[in-house]
């Protein structure tokens, strides 16, 4: 055995000793990691697949119906919104009428000034 290979063999021997003396907590953690990694490959049971899918779809449908269907409180709030919009519209219309009436006055005033100055 050459000197180089003897040195390698000694190092390898010490490293194997290091491996053999792994602490119990680390061994436990490694076993946990191994089991978790292996668990990701376990196939799901085919027997339960369809009932689970059916229950999931039923839940989705029920949730959709509940969300889409308006209830009484929603109806009343819609009515309130409509009334509010109507009132606001009427107020705007009233304001517009007054504004138009004022505009006639200001036009008359402008003409009077022009005739006076011209």
């Amino acid at each position: 055995m050459t000197k180089h290979s003897k040195f390698e063999a000694e190092l390898r021997d010490d490293l194997h000793t290091l491996e053999e003396t792994t602490g119990a907590p680390e061994i436990f953690r490694l076993a946990q990691a191994r089991n978790r990694a292996l668990a990701q490959t376990e196939p799901t049971s085919g027997k339960l697949r369809w009932p689970v899918m059916g229950a999931s779809m039923a839940s989705v449908l029920l949730a959709t119906v509940l969300i889409v269907q308006p209830d009484s409180t929603e109806l009343s709030s819609q009515v309130d919104n409509q009334l509010g919009t109507q009132l606001a519209t009427e107020m705007i219309i009233d304001d517009s009428i007054e504004l138009y009436e004022d505009l006639d006055f200001y036009y008359w005033l402008a003409e009077t000034d022009q005739n006076g100055t011209s």
Partner: peptide, 11 residues
């Protein structure tokens, strides 16, 4: 395989 290699890989 994982049991075989895990300690060495850890170190």
């Amino acid at each position: 395989f994982l049991k075989f290699i895990e300690r060495r890989a850890f170190h």
